[in-house]
Design a protein around this nucleic acid. Structure first.
Length: 481
RNA sequence: GUCCCCAUCGUCUAACCGGUUAGGAUACCACUCUUUCAAGGUGGUGAAACGGGUUCAAAUCCCGUUGGGGACACCA
């Protein structure tokens, strides 16, 4: 494997929302690429749109990155603090005659765009401010109009070599003279990106496909500024179920939301890595180390991928069932506390019980929050029975069985699952019924549910007294049915 | 309206440079084990968008059509 020297990559989120899974995936690939080549991963916050940026969003994005384990080597840098730097570049462009002032107001531009659209005309800027004569300029200035700086697009064709897509080219006449500095003096995205990637010596710009058209503009800027461009790799987009770009309409899109719903960092990392990339063999469950070892941008696919939450859930379940009980418990405790089912002081003395519980539940849980959903009856009394189960398992004849079973259980001193199994099977056999005919009503009586871990696990964890109480309660319930 | 990107099971994808019964995973279904399934085991349904080339041979290369997506802000 050839080493690429001095790799420097970055993730450049804009703090106008939470950490989107698309951004997270881009961050992930950048991070992997940096770590794999012993390079640097830079975090840069693109907050030049001061109206839409917020402190809370910044914190939330950083938190999301940390949760995924994507630690950065430099930054966070804030574009809002680098305004003077951008100005040097825009001035250079202006001086070289490669940019010009535009006095059109945003409203005017919007109106023109609107009418162009309705008349099905091209919506490009018409360069009306390019050849402004002194009088007109003076008039605009005296009217106190704001002026934005536009980049003059030269004639010709622009092309770049994309690591994932190969050559991408476009005729310059299809690109408009875009604004590089707003009338308030702040740079626009395309200018700021070029300046920053250059100033920060970024070697590879790895970002979403939706930036391809921006890349054309940026390449033009690199050329105009006579500075060299980084290598580009445009990742396929992540789509929602309807195959449009993943957005809030599709439900959960922020990584913190997935975290809160009980997904594991490792599983999320694995899943995101595999969305658009694969190691070339049939492996799917892969550790960070394995992914790092195998990853290459060349193997990233060109086709956009639908975010399949079901598959994420499956993968998360795989991770949960492979975790040690101790670790699962550590992850689940905050959730149990949140429900008010245990408190800090009780954790140590209930440790054995809790470990038992997570061990029994673990194989069938897909999300950490499932532990809460399927363990209520270990913490609270059963006050309702699943109606479907009642119909199926609570009949007249079960009454006698349960009553006899209680008597049997009361004699027991050994309440281990092995012994319980033995006792219960023997009981069924003597009464000439199938074990299932005892087990199902018992499960429903002690848990209120028809599904869950093995019944003997449940009984052992609940303990003799509790089991007998609940059976008694169920008997009363059946009697008044 | 303009430009750009993309095209294998429902979904994620594999098959390095053309020769495969088109493989895996997920989802779904069935069977099985069992004590329930939402767990385990086994199996199954299911894909090259279309049309032209090139070639002995095309999922694979080329062109076109169609379809999908993205971009076209003083947002990033």
């Amino acid at each position: 494997m050839k080493k690429i020297e001095n790799v420097r990559v970055r993730i450049a989120p804009s703090p106008t929302g939470f950490l989107h899974v698309g951004t997270a995936r881009a961050a992930l690939y950048n991070w992997i690429f940096a770590r794999k080549h012993n390079g640097s991963f830079i975090l840069r916050v693109e907050d030049t749109d001061l109206k839409r940026s917020s402190k809370e969003m910044i914190e939330s994005i950083l938190e999301g990155l940390r949760w995924l384990g994507l630690d950065w080597d430099e930054g966070p840098f804030f574009q809002s603090e680098r305004l003077a730097i951008y100005r040097q570049y825009t001035e250079r462009l202006l001086k070289d005659g490669k940019a010009y002032y535009c006095y059109c107001t945003p409203q005017e531009l919007a109106e023109r765009r609107e009418s162009a659209k309705s008349e099905k005309r091209d919506v490009k800027y018409d360069r009306r401010c390019l050849g402004l004569i002194d009088n007109e300029r003076k008039r605009f200035e005296s009217e106190n109009r704001g002026r934005a700086l536009r980049f003059f697009i030269p004639e010709g064709e622009t092309a770049f070599q994309d690591i994932i897509h190969g050559e991408i080219k476009k005729k310059n006449r299809d690109i408009e003279d875009f604004v590089i500095m707003k009338s308030d003096g702040t740079p626009t995205y395309n200018l700021a990106v070029v300046v920053d990637d250059h100033e920060m010596a970024v070697t590879h710009t790895i970002r979403g496909d939706d930036h391809i058209s921006n890349t054309m503009k940026q390449v033009l800027l690199y050329n105009a500024l006579s500075i060299s461009a980084p290598r580009f790799a445009h990742l396929p987009l992540i789509l929602g179920k309807d195959r449009s770009k993943l957005s809030k309409r599709h439900g959960a899109v922020s990584v913190s939301q997935y975290r809160d719903e009980g997904f594991l960092s490792d599983a999320m990392f694995n899943f995101l890595a595999l969305l658009g990339w694969n190691p070339g063999d049939n492996r799917e469950i892969m550790s960070r180390e394995e992914i790092l070892e195998q990853f290459s941008l060349e193997r990233v696919s060109k086709t956009s991928a639908v975010f399949d939450q079901q598959k994420l859930e499956w993968m998360n379940g795989e991770y949960i069932s492979k975790m040690d009980n101790e670790d699962v418990l550590k992850a689940v405790i905050p959730l149990l506390k949140g429900e008010g089912w245990i408190d800090e002081g009780a954790i140590e003395q209930k440790r054995t019980f809790l470990l038992h519980l997570v061990a029994a539940l673990k194989p069938r849980m897909r999300k950490l929050t499932d532990f809460v959903k399927y363990s209520v009856y270990f913490f609270k009394d059963v006050d309702a029975y699943e109606p479907k189960g009642v119909k199926k398992h609570f009949a007249e004849k079960t009454l006698v069985l349960l009553e006899a079973l209680i008597e049997k259980l009361e004699e027991l001193t050994d309440f281990s699952k092995e012994h319980l199994e033995h006792v219960l099977r023997e009981f069924a056999e003597k009464r000439n019924v199938k074990p299932a005919q005892v087990i199902h009503p018992v499960r429903l009586a002690v848990s209120g549910m028809t599904v869950g871990p093995g019944i003997f696990d449940i009984l052992e964890i609940l303990g003799k007294e509790c089991v007998i109480n609940r059976l008694t309660k169920a008997i009363k319930y059946i009697k008044v049915l």
